[in-house]
Design a protein around this nucleic acid. Structure first.
Length: 492
RNA sequence: GUCUCCAUCGUCUAGUGGUUAGGACAUCGGGUUUUCAUCCCGACAACGGGGGUUCAAUUCCCCCUGGAGAUGCCA
């Protein structure tokens, strides 16, 4: 039988690292097994589901290059793939369970349930959760409540004794006493929508899902799902619970750990290749040595056995490292195209860059390429080229252990030399600049640094002569003269 | 509280009943270099604790501890 797996997110927020990791593992597994990868939208929470979140799901998967074989937008033989469009289906199956005596109607109000829960926590009651109040209503009581027109939900009759076991590919057998399973969870809500448990089981069965790969946070509801399969008389699929992705503090990764939405990573200038590669190495590894994989390679070599059981901490630093590596793999032309939007955003170039602007950026790319961790870094690195810089402070112009008069003399001597830029080779200029250092008995850095600060406004910049060339001689000279004036005022 | 899962350097991980416990990121040194970055070289750094089983346990079993997750008309 061919493998069928699914990624089934609920569109209640932006796609985040954890979700994407689950999507990726399902996708890789499907491809490696020559099976099908199905996308299903679990929008049964009418309160929290939003069109924006749904769009973000599509955008994210598209950006990552993850294509689904069946699902919304592409269709398939088991549709519809959006749960809100399967509304009637769940109702029928829930009713069937009631008719079979496997489930029952519950008329308890949320007020009563809230009070109950509060009381239980307060009393530290051994019994936590629903008290099965409506489970044993007799016909008379039931019809009386119906007469009142009370809204009802449908709850599963969880067996009062026995144990339920499910098998996990990674974890082995996991067993829970039925008394420890949720006491009669809601299957069908009062608005007629199914809960996750119901919809998930029905759809996985109807869609012929063979393997369920989902985060470990679902382990506790594994037995409950088995109970549901049993109630319907269906064969459960294989389970494979994926280790969770944690923040630095060891807690489930969330917004307070920084950006977690894929959309944020994209905006900052992370490459999909890097994100895919890094995220895949959290909770999975090939052999512990090899660490660079393209998406296609992962589609080849991915296997369940290599998945780790322990949760992993998301390391932003390592992602950055991967990203830098992938940036450096790009050709200058590709990188130029990728960088332009950031410069446009910063207001450095026009929305539709002119030929000269594009040429300037193209010349900039090779000298900043190996300095970029994320594409967005280009903004700070290129600022001196596209924007006015503040007049540098005196102390910034002075290299370590170098006084004002010396530095002033350096800059004065430098000016005529730099004017020759372009008419003589860079090596010649570099030699002449170094000669100044020898002459004044200072370090070479004592010559280069003040020029750098005068021209770029920073002690950190791309190589000096390249920077000046890009800036243009007029601006460079003006900035140098301004620095000279600043120093002169100090001496006077 | 109860239930379930997990446990190798700071982090991601490889690994085996007998290994100098390997790699990567990070960190720290050094080299290249006009700064930064890249690149190269090097260093630091781990089997949570206690019992077993065994000639031998990081590896197999049990307990403890620690961490996480679940306990909703959210998924």
């Amino acid at each position: 039988m061919s493998v069928r797996v699914r990624y089934a997110p609920s569109p209640t927020g932006m796609q985040h690292i954890g979700g994407v990791r689950t999507a990726l593992f399902n996708y890789f597994f499907a491809r490696a097994q020559k099976g099908s990868f199905i996308l299903r939208v679990e929008d049964t929470d009418q309160e929290r589901s939003t069109p924006e979140a749904l769009q973000d799901l599509y955008d994210t998967l598209e950006w990552l290059g993850v294509e689904w074989d069946e699902g919304p937008l592409v269709g398939g033989d088991y549709g519809p793939y959006v749960q809100s469009q399967r509304f009637e289906l769940y109702k029928e199956y829930a009713e069937k369970l009631v008719a079979d005596g496997k489930a029952y109607r519950c008329y308890c109000t949320s007020e009563r349930l809230d009070a109950l829960r509060e009381k239980q926590t307060l009393e530290k009651s051994k019994q936590q959760g629903y008290d099965r109040h409506c489970r044993n209503l007799d016909e008379a009581e039931r019809s009386a409540l119906e007469q009142q027109g009370l809204a009802s939900v449908i709850r599963l009759k969880v067996p009062l004794e026995g144990k339920t076991t499910f098998h996990d590919v990674l974890m082995g057998d996991i067993t829970r006493r039925n008394t420890d399973v949720n006491p009669d969870p809601v299957l069908l809500k009062s608005d007629g929508f199914p809960t996750y448990h119901l919809a998930n089981v029905i759809d996985d069965h109807l869609m012929g899902i063979t393997h369920i790969m989902r985060a470990q946070e679902w382990i506790p509801s594994g037995p409950l799902h088995i109970l549901l399969y049993e109630a319907f008389g269906w064969e459960p699929p294989m389970y494979c619970h994926l280790p969770m992705v944690m923040g630095k503090d060891g807690q489930k990764l969330s917004k307070r750990h920084g950006s977690t939405s894929v959309r944020d990573f994209k905006a900052k200038g992370y490459l999909p290749e890097a994100l895919i590669n890094y995220v895949s190495m959290v909770g999975w590894s090939y052999d512990g040595e090899r660490e660079f994989f393209t998406k296609d390679e992962l589609c080849e070599v991915f296997s369940l056995e290599k998945i780790n059981k322990a949760p992993g901490v998301f390391d932003y630093k390592k992602l950055e490292w991967y990203n830098g590596m992938y940036i450096r793999q790009k050709s200058d032309g590709q990188l130029t195209d990728m960088l332009i939007p950031y410069l446009v955003d910063a207001g450095f170039v026009s929305g539709n860059p002119s030929e000269s602007e594009t040429a300037k950026i193209a010349a900039l790319v090779p000298i900043i390429k190996e300095r970029l961790k994320v594409l967005g870094d280009v903004v700070d690195m290129a600022r001196f080229l596209f924007a006015e810089i503040e007049a540098p402070a005196v102390e910034d112009l002075l290299p370590k252990k170098q006084d004002i008069p010396t530095t002033l003399e350096v800059l004065v001597r430098v000016l005529p030399i730099l004017r020759k830029l372009g008419s003589v080779g860079d090596e010649v200029l570099e030699q002449e600049l170094a000669d100044i250092a020898t002459l004044l008995d200072i370090k070479v850095n004592g010559v280069f640094m003040p020029i750098r600060v005068a021209i770029t406004g920073s002690t950190v910049s791309p190589p000096l002569l390249d920077s000046i060339r890009l800036l243009g001689m007029d601006t460079a000279v003006a900035r140098l003269e301004r620095a000279i004036t600043i120093l002169k005022n100090e001496v006077a």
